[in-house]
Design a protein around this nucleic acid. Structure first.
Length: 863
DNA sequence: ACTCAAGGCCAT
DNA sequence: ATGGCCTTGAGT
């Protein structure tokens, strides 16, 4: 299974005037993506892997005729959406289904021989901040198919069992249930002659399950390529465009409940209805324009003030009549976190939600954005400014201090003054590229005249520079005789001062860069430059080019270096007003879809002026947030299998059934993601990345928590030793349950020994996590918080947005725990320290690739 | 010494 | 009022 992701930001550039530069940029990006970095696991339903990477799956040998959907190129699947992440999934592999051609060496699939030797799969610090992205990705998602070797320093290159030195070694598989040394396992490995024709690394399809599945895999081959298409559709369409999952899945010729429509060779079909997402990418239409309000007013007075540590001019005006904030702040620049948008604009925004191709900047031209009230602007209403300036003006921490991305890994580590694009003004038009720097003049971002450099934060011509300076210095108030949508070009720039200045603001010119003391020369302070989207700094050293375009280039090169960071950074650039208009949009949508969350969102806005980092979390907001998480969780549905009886019917095709489970897992995860209260606050690429990296942990957390909360407490008493007799009994019980289920599913008996070798370790570990949760009496409220916290944990590539989100739910969990269990002062901590165990179990689940196991166990709870 | 982004000057 | 050119001066 592969997931190939193309940066959605490609499309971001389409809105800007310099098409030539845009194309150049796109080409550059595309070429860089020709060899995508392996980010995923062949065994992960959402794993990412180069399309041309050696198949980590030990499925058909070359020449064998297994229909492999890896032949479905992203382009084939996503012809109309080059910027949309494309997912290629082998769901049968995800479920640990063997295939024809799989060597039947019964000892092959286990442990190190499963191609997992190059990682410490259970390393609990896998997601630690210190671990590098590549290391993490390879170690977690590389199914052993050839990528990932020679990874980080932790990599094991021998064929030692992967769990030999891992924390999970205490659960090492053995012939008996009781944890014992893995020496037997190792010795078997060593004694077993390897099949000569085998690839050096083989997948970890458990050997005995291979044998068990032999009958049907021989007879039926691998089916479920409709599943493949479905997964493509679900993820690329559902995750990205959020709206048409059901449509996508049904149009793909499959349904979630049945794969019967799929033929064994269905993979040859590349026409997936689910992938036709282009229609979903249609851009939003802005609401009708309102004339710029320009009531006659007394002249404002000037206050010499300090904003963000920068002495600057603040204009104060006589009290204004309540002026409605800009209509639905859907544009990237009208980032006002205003909650009082009119119902009309709210409705418009709601209509646009879902239609919006998230990841792209709104296709609103500069000339058709919301009105700009210049009087309010001079009165200090910074909400009309791009988010970055607002944040800085409000002295918030999210301003581009350079910390954001510097902390996200090494990609931007040298950019000490890098502006966080997450709060940056609208994405600029593409600067000239490096190789054509000399012959390509810079173009003014306002009027497209020849630019002379970076002025007040963006690349402009002398005319627009002077215009902006005079306007700010003289606090001019313009009006537009039309509807505020005048086109600003070199020829027409003087026809409408209002629209010209509005475009200056929208493009990110920084008011604070106009000096109140009119001191010529020198440099502005760092605080002012932090407001720039272009770095003020030593970019000339790193590029042969000098000058501002080099700065632009450098910045964009930053985002293209690391796929993850690329997604994060540039996708943020396409969502420059995260903290503003998305909050706005989130509130508007939540008001109708998830009212309980509105309390929290309103609170967020109310907290805007003061730093919210260390703010105590009001309990009512906590309850509301948690309830919204519970509402979107659909615990039982996501943790169990609906049609267990059908699955246990051995008369139906096993591979079909397992593919159904795979479909269901992915589908439910995607749907859960889309229901999350903060779904709209993050670019879709970020959601995809999060899910890609965290799905297995989410699965373990979900299924274990379900067992802990709803399972029969036959053998485990709260407070008992989790590793004691109760644990062993619970493991034994689960193994027996699993044996029964698999026997029924396959229609032939499975010995406990075989099962033990296949899934013993994983079952033990998952049972351990379950008992752990049961022991602490995990509550639903805590579970949903832990789930989100888990999802938002990114070892690397995380953004400040993610960090803040996670902090939000950390605070939420802490608040809840403090109120609900005041007698347990350490409960919050006790809950969080369970997460490494979840990770450890998830790693084993990933290794086994038999993701249906915990679901089977959960589903039997009800029986 | 050089860069470059501020403000200033002044012809238009 | 505009905008091309000049001056300035902190940062490199």
């Amino acid at each position: 299974m592969t997931l190939t992701s193309s940066p959605c930001e490609l499309d971001n550039m389409s809105l800007f005037q310099d098409l030539k530069l845009k194309r150049r940029k796109v080409d550059s990006r595309c070429s860089s993506d020709d060899s995508p970095v392996s980010l995923g696991s062949a065994g992960s339903p959402l794993g990412i892997q180069p399309a041309d990477a050696p198949s980590p799956i030990n499925f058909p040998a070359p020449g064998e005729s297994m229909a492999d959907t890896s032949t479905l190129s992203p382009e084939a699947n996503m012809p109309s959406s080059p910027g949309c992440p494309v997912v290629k999934v082998k769901s049968e592999y995800l479920l640990g289904i063997p295939s024809p051609g799989t060597p039947r060496d019964p000892l092959r699939g286990t442990g190190a021989a499963s191609g997992l030797e190059a990682r410490d799969t259970t390393c609990p610090d896998r997601a630690s901040p210190d671990s590098t992205k590549e290391e993490s990705d390879n170690s977690v998602f590389d199914g052993g198919g050839g990528g990932g070797s020679g990874g980080g320093g932790r990599s094991e290159t021998s064929s030692q069992p992967s769990h030999r030195s891992s924390p999970s070694s205490q659960y090492s598989p053995s012939q008996s249930i009781s944890p014992s040394a893995s020496s037997t396992h190792v010795s078997q490995q060593q004694q077993t002659p390897q099949t000569p024709s085998l690839r050096p690394r083989v997948p970890s399809v458990p050997p005995h399950l291979l044998a068990h599945h032999q009958f049907w895999s021989q007879n039926n081959g691998i089916q479920g390529f409709a599943t493949q298409r479905l997964l493509n559709g679900v993820i690329s369409s559902a995750v990205n465009y959020g709206q048409n999952v059901a449509v996508a899945s049904t149009s793909s010729g499959t349904s979630l409940s049945s794969n019967t429509g799929s033929s064994g060779n269905g993979a040859t079909s590349t026409s997936t209805g689910a992938t036709s997402t282009a229609s979903s990418c249609e851009t939003m239409k802005p609401p009708a324009q309102r004339p710029a309000p320009a009531p006659p007013r007394p002249p404002p007075t000037v206050i010499m003030g300090e904003i963000g540590g920068v002495r600057t001019m603040i204009w104060s005006a006589p009290p204004l009549d309540p002026v409605p904030p800009p209509a639905a702040s859907w544009t990237t620049t009208a980032a006002a976190a205003s909650c009082s948008s009119s119902e009309e604009s709210a409705a418009q925004l709601l209509l646009n939600l879902g239609q919006e191709s998230r990841g792209k900047p709104p296709s609103v031209s500069y000339s058709s954005g919301p009105p700009l009230n210049m009087e309010r602007l001079w009165a200090g209403d910074m909400t009309q400014l791009p988010a970055a300036q607002q944040m800085q003006a409000l002295n918030l921490t999210a301003s581009g201090s350079g910390q954001t991305w510097e902390r996200n890994g090494g990609v931007i580590k040298s950019e000490t003054t890098s502006q966080s694009m997450s709060v940056a003004p609208p994405a600029p038009p593409m600067p000239p590229q490096e190789h054509e720097e000399d012959e390509t003049p810079m173009i003014c971002m306002i009027c497209e005249d020849k630019a002379t450099g970076l002025h007040y934060g963006i690349i402009t011509c002398e005319g627009c520079k002077g215009f902006f300076k005079r306007t700010v210095q003289n606090r001019r108030v313009y009006t537009c005789v039309a509807e505020g949508g005048c086109e600003i070009t070199k020829a027409q720039r003087n026809r409408c001062q209002y629209c010209r200045f509005k475009k200056c603001i929208e493009q990110g010119m920084v008011l604070q860069a106009v000096r109140e003391d009119r001191m010529p020369g020198g440099r502005n302070s760092g605080a002012v430059y932090n407001l720039y989207k272009v770095k003020y700094k030593k970019h000339k050293k790193s590029n042969k080019t000098s000058g501002v375009a080099g700065g632009f280039l450098h910045h964009h090169k930053i985002s293209s270096g690391d796929p993850l960071n690329s997604q994060s950074t540039t996708s943020h650039s396409s969502h420059p007003a995260h903290s503003g208009h998305l909050v706005n949009g989130t509130i508007l949508k939540t008001a109708l879809t998830n009212p309980s969350e509105v309390v929290h969102l309103r609170q967020r806005l109310d907290n805007t002026v003061s730093s919210s980092r260390d703010r105590s979390f009001p309990f009512d907001a906590t309850v509301a947030m948690i309830q919204s998480l519970i509402d979107c969780d659909e615990f039982q549905d996501i943790a169990t299998l609906r049609n267990l009886d059908e699955l246990l019917d051995h008369k139906s095709n096993l591979s079909d059934k397992l593919c159904q489970i795979g479909d269901s897992i992915v589908y439910k995860l995607v749907q859960w993601t889309k229901r999350l209260p903060f779904y709209l606050e993050l670019p879709v690429e970020v959601h995809t990345t999060l899910l890609t990296h965290k799905w297995h942990e989410i699965l373990v957390l979900t299924t274990s928590a379900y067992q802990a909360i709803h399972g029969q407490h036959k053998f485990s008493n709260v407070g008992s030793d989790v590793m004691g007799a109760d644990f062993m009994q619970e493991v034994s019980n689960n193994m027996y349950t699993l044996q029964t289920c698999l026997t029924n599913m396959m229609g032939r008996p499975i010995t406990m020994d075989q099962l033990q070798q296949d899934v013993g370790l994983m079952v033990e570990k998952i049972t351990y996590v379950t008992l752990m949760f049961r022991r602490v009496r995990l509550r639903m409220e805590e579970y949903v918080c832990l789930k989100v916290i888990t999802m938002l944990s990114q070892a690397r590539g995380g953004t400040m947005e993610l960090e803040h989100l996670q902090e939000r739910y950390m605070s939420c969990l802490r608040s809840f725990v403090e109120h609900s269990a005041p007698q347990q002062p350490n409960r919050f901590h006790d809950l969080l320290i369970r997460l490494p165990e979840v990770q450890s179990a998830a790693a084993l689940l990933l290794e086994s690739k038999m993701f249906y196991v915990p679901f089977l166990l959960n589903s039997t709870i009800q029986r």
